[in-house]
């Protein structure tokens, strides 16, 4: 087979023209980006740089106060972190916990979004009001409200369950590892499903009615329409909601810290963010804490890369 002939000249010309146009645009684009760039460098790049620097030193409270000399450790903080079985246990717990929270919020959010498209206007308004209420509740307040609901002595949940004849008198929901994680996951799903619901509702509403009608005319069943027509259209939205929820739930701090009293019985409910806090600020080992921060940043950046790929 002969190689395809490439029309060199016109292509080169257009490319040159495009580049000329491009260069001018690039300059003004850069100019427009300067203010944002300055803010980003000051508020993001510099702290991130300091984080990396601190993670390479033996940097505790005496060092910060200038009472002890700085010792450059290189990657020793990372070595001891990655060699600590507790870190891997916490990392695994964080990943699983985030996965459950993401899955839960997606399921609940999507189901309610579908419900909202079919409900009557007033029911839809009520649903949105309730969802936005949960969304607007500060994490701290939400965590305490859930704790009160599930309090072992005075909680509404135990009271209702015991009137139903279940032997839950004085049952502690935060004692067992899975029970405590489950309770916190419930709270997180409760306060993060509204984002998924609003996103999915917007997506479903934007699907042209003609498409669904066409599918119906072709004799597709409701299930078939959902899986072969609606789902593919919604896929980018689902992907974005998944990645955003993943980033949020991976970084969860408040709910775990408040609801399990700083990490649960014998540290069984620690997640990476709370673990970093305990090591860095409570234990005053800023160097090791910074190393955990860097590891978390890298993991989240990987997720962000996936997010950007999907958006493209």
């Amino acid at each position: 087979m002969a190689p395809p002939i490439t029309p060199v000249a016109p292509d080169a010309r257009t490319r040159a023209a495009r580049q000329g146009l491009h260069r001018g645009e690039t300059r003004s684009a850069l100019l427009y980006l300067v203010p944002a760039g300055v803010v980003l460098v000051g508020l993001l790049a510099y702290p991130l740089y300091q984080l990396v620097v601190i993670s390479l030193y033996d940097y505790g409270q005496p060092q910060a106060a200038g009472a002890a000399p700085l010792v450059f450790l290189g990657f020793e903080n990372y070595v001891s972190l990655l060699g600590d079985p507790r870190f891997w246990d916490v990392l695994a717990a964080t990943v699983l916990f985030a996965a459950v929270c993401v899955g839960g919020s997606l399921l609940v959010g999507t189901a309610l979004a579908v419900l909202a498209t079919r409900a009557s206007p007033w029911a839809r308004k009520l649903l949105f009001l309730a969802a936005l209420g949960a969304w607007a509740t500060p994490a701290m307040a939400g965590s305490y409200v859930w704790l009160f609901l599930f309090d072992q002595d005075f909680g509404l949940v135990n009271e209702v369950l015991s009137t139903l004849g279940l032997a839950v008198d004085g049952h502690s929901w935060t004692f067992g590892r899975f029970s405590a994680f489950g309770l916190v996951a419930g709270e997180i799903i409760w306060c993060s499903f509204p984002f998924v619901m609003v996103t999915m509702y917007a997506g479903i509403s934007a699907i042209p009615r003609e498409v669904v009608e066409a599918a119906a005319l072709d004799g597709a069943s409701a299930t078939r329409t959902a899986t072969s027509v609606l789902l593919p259209i919604l896929r980018p939205l689902i992907a974005i909601a998944t990645v955003q929820s993943t980033i949020w739930d991976f970084k969860v701090f408040t709910q775990i810290y408040v609801m399990t009293n700083g990490g649960g019985v014998a540290g069984q409910n620690l997640v990476l963010n709370v673990f970093a806090y305990q090591e860095a600020f409570a234990g005053q080992r800023y160097g090791l804490g910074a190393a955990i921060g860097v590891v978390m940043t890298v993991l989240l950046m990987l997720i962000t890369v996936v997010y950007l790929r999907i958006r493209r």
Partner: peptide, 14 residues
């Protein structure tokens, strides 16, 4: 170079 040249901030309490 930057990492090696710079160190975390320290207060002067000496």
């Amino acid at each position: 170079t930057v990492v090696a040249a710079c160190a975390p901030p320290q207060a002067d309490n000496t």
